[in-house]
Amino acid sequence: MIIKQFNSDNQTQKGVIHFILITMGSFIISVSCNPQTNEKENEQDSYVERAIDVNYDLIHPVKRISLHYDLEEISGLSYYKKDVLACVNDEKGRLYLFDVSKEKIIKDIKFGKGGDYEGVEIIGEMAYIIRSDGRIFHFNLNKTEQEDFEAKVLKTPLSAKNDVEGLGYDTQSNGLLIACKEDAEVAKNNINGKAIYAYDLDKSTFLKKPFLKTSHKKVEKFLEDQGVSGGKVEKFKPSGIALHPRSGLIYLIASVGKALIVLDKEGAIKEYVKLDSKLFRQPEGICFAPNGDMYISSEGRAGRGYILKFKFLRK
């Protein structure tokens, strides 16, 4: 019927088209203005926009570096020297020195048997690699060519139930910082939430009192105080830790929940950012260059692992 009118009456045709366009426009405006329609998307944006507040644009990395297939399961990351990062694979007892400018492995060091290695820290020429059960393997990078090369092990009271996933370094105390993904309790110290422990390198001693503590409730309270909508967030489970070379603040990254949390050394939350899951596929490693540039690594998930570089935005 309408088709006949279009053929016989041009004015009627224009009127009907005009009516349809107005109706469609009203519908589109109504949908886009409906807060329930975009509630989840807006909640994600409210977190992502906070990325600028940590002095990094976490939405736009300056570089994406694809890794060799040996690092498909990259789990730990540390700065070694200009353009060279140290990486570990969570299945192999090997340390890889990776040149980010040439995008290739320049050295591959076997230091132990296969195992769940989760964090690495380079201090001078000393390499420290932590396994998920809390054992810390260490050796001098300059001596790895010797026939009698053997990584030594620092024992801690941590175990597989703690599921250690992050290793950092505090220059001020000369201590390794150890992040537990799961159970934070050590020697029945009744810790609620998550804990960061320290290993004093000067005294070769594990400190049973946590270096700092945080909790899921603290995160929710922080977001509520900051006026961020939808303060309910997935429980934070650290997968990487690093100290900022300029501010001294502690950066914790989590693959579970895709988030970055920044704390001071008293454990006070300074910032929380929800990461874009498309950009950060499975973030497990984090480190900083001396100038403040930040690197975050992600596992490949049946593909090539990769590292994202973020420029330090000085304020």
Rank of each mutant, 00 (worst) to 15 (best):
G134S: 10
A195Q: 10
V31D: 00
L58D: 07
K203N: 13
I106G: 09
K315N: 13
S46P: 00
K232N: 11
V16Q: 03
Q226A: 05
R304W: 01
V100E: 07
S173L: 05
G114C: 02
N34H: 00
L249V: 00
P157F: 14
F98V: 13
S101G: 01
Q282W: 05
E150L: 09
K152C: 10
N42K: 10
S132E: 06
D83W: 14
G76A: 13
Y79F: 15
S78D: 08
K265F: 10
M1F: 01
A242R: 04
A184P: 14
T171F: 12
A289D: 04
K209A: 15
Y306P: 06
N189F: 10
V219H: 06
G119K: 04
F312T: 04
L154V: 08
E284Y: 05
K92P: 02
E49L: 00
L313M: 12
Y306G: 03
S101M: 11
C87Q: 12
V186F: 13
R304C: 03
S32E: 08
Y197I: 07
E41L: 06
I286W: 03
G257L: 03
P210L: 10
V256N: 11
E266H: 07
V31N: 00
V219Q: 05
E72D: 15
G166V: 05
I22G: 04
L212M: 15
S32Q: 09
V48D: 01
A187P: 11
I105Y: 06
K218V: 05
N140C: 08
Q282F: 07
H138E: 07
Y295H: 06
A184V: 10
E121D: 10
E150I: 04
V84K: 12
K237H: 04
K4E: 07
D163G: 06
F27M: 13
I29G: 06
L77M: 11
K213C: 15
L141N: 01
S247I: 00
P61W: 12
E284T: 09
T144Y: 06
N140L: 05
G115I: 11
E43R: 03
L260T: 02
N190D: 08
K188R: 15
G305I: 02
K217R: 14
T156S: 09
I241P: 02
A127S: 14
S173N: 09
Q13E: 03
G193M: 11
Q13K: 14
S255W: 01
P210R: 11
K113Y: 12
D70H: 14
Y69P: 06
P238Q: 05
M294S: 01
L67V: 09
L97G: 03
S229L: 08
R94H: 13
K309W: 01
F312H: 15
N89L: 12
R281T: 10
G231A: 07
A198P: 07
R301L: 08
K274Y: 04
A268F: 05
L252T: 04
L176M: 12
F6K: 01
T205Y: 03
T214Y: 07
I130L: 13
G25S: 14
P157D: 12
Y272M: 11
V262K: 01
A151S: 14
P157W: 13
F312C: 05
K14N: 01
Y251S: 04
N42Q: 11
S215Q: 11
L308V: 04
D170L: 06
H68D: 15
C33T: 06
N140M: 05
Q5A: 08
V62A: 10
T12S: 03
T144H: 02
